[in-house]
C-alpha cells in the first residue's frame, strides 16, 4: 500500500518515472525485474541515486541492501551523476595493444581527472570500458555515445577540446 502510494506521488512529480514503473509492471513487480528496472532508472535519469534505489527496493519488495548490492556489483550502473559530456576510452585488448593507455594518460593530463571522475564544472566525465566490440577500429573512444575508431592522442584531445568549448 505504502509503495503504491509512493509510486503515485513519484509519477506526479516526474514523468521520467513512467518508464521505470512500466518496466516493473511488465515484469509483474517480481524480484527478477531488478536489473531491468535499474537499467530503466539509469536510462531515465542518467544515474542511480539513493532515492531511486529506495523506491525500486520498495516497489519490488526487496531489501535495500540487495538492491544496493546489485547496483554496485555491475559496472554498467553508476551511482554518480555523469557530466554533460562523456568520453569513454576503450581499454580492451586490441585497443590496449594499439596504445589506448597513452591516450588515457594524455586525456588525464589535459582535463586533470582520473577515470570514473567528472570535472569540477560538471562538463566532462572520463570513463574507461572493457571492450566495446569495435576491435577492428582500435583504438576506439566513445564521445557522447558515438564510437570513434582509429583514434590517436592528438585526435582525442582535439575532440575533447571541441566538446568543452562548444557550449561556451
Amino acid at each position: 500500500m505504502e509503495a503504491k502510494e509512493a509510486e503515485r506521488v513519484k509519477v506526479d512529480e516526474d514523468r521520467r518515472w513512467r518508464l521505470v514503473n512500466r518496466t516493473m509492471r511488465l515484469h509483474g513487480h517480481q524480484p527478477d525485474a531488478l536489473i531491468e528496472t535499474l537499467h530503466a532508472v539509469q536510462e531515465s535519469f542518467g544515474f542511480l541515486d539513493l532515492d531511486s534505489l529506495k523506491y525500486v527496493a520498495d516497489s519490488l519488495h526487496l531489501p535495500l541492501s540487495l538492491v544496493y548490492g546489485v547496483a554496485t556489483f555491475y559496472h554498467f550502473f553508476t551511482l554518480k551523476p555523469p557530466g554533460e559530456h562523456t568520453c569513454v576510452i576503450c581499454l580492451g585488448t586490441a585497443c590496449y595493444i594499439a596504445g589506448s593507455t597513452n591516450m588515457l594518460k594524455a586525456v588525464e593530463k589535459e582535463v586533470g581527472i582520473k577515470p570514473g571522475e567528472t570535472t569540477s564544472d560538471g562538463k566532462l566525465s572520463l570513463l574507461t570500458a572493457r571492450c566495446m566490440g569495435s576491435c577492428g577500429l582500435a583504438p576506439a573512444v566513445v564521445f557522447d555515445g558515438a564510437i570513434h575508431g582509429k583514434m590517436s592522442s592528438t585526435a582525442v584531445l582535439q575532440n575533447i577540446r571541441r566538446l568543452l568549448n562548444h557550449d561556451d
Binding site: 536489473i35 548490492g69 546489485v70 555491475y74 559496472h75 554498467f76 550502473f77 572493457r130
Partner: peptide
Amino acid sequence: VRLGAGAFVCGEETALIASIEGRRG
C-alpha cells in the same frame, strides 16, 4: 531479451542464471 550490466563473470552459466534472476552475478 535480458540486458547484462557489464560483469564478465556473468558469462559463466551459473552466474548468468543469477543475473537473469535479478541478483548479483
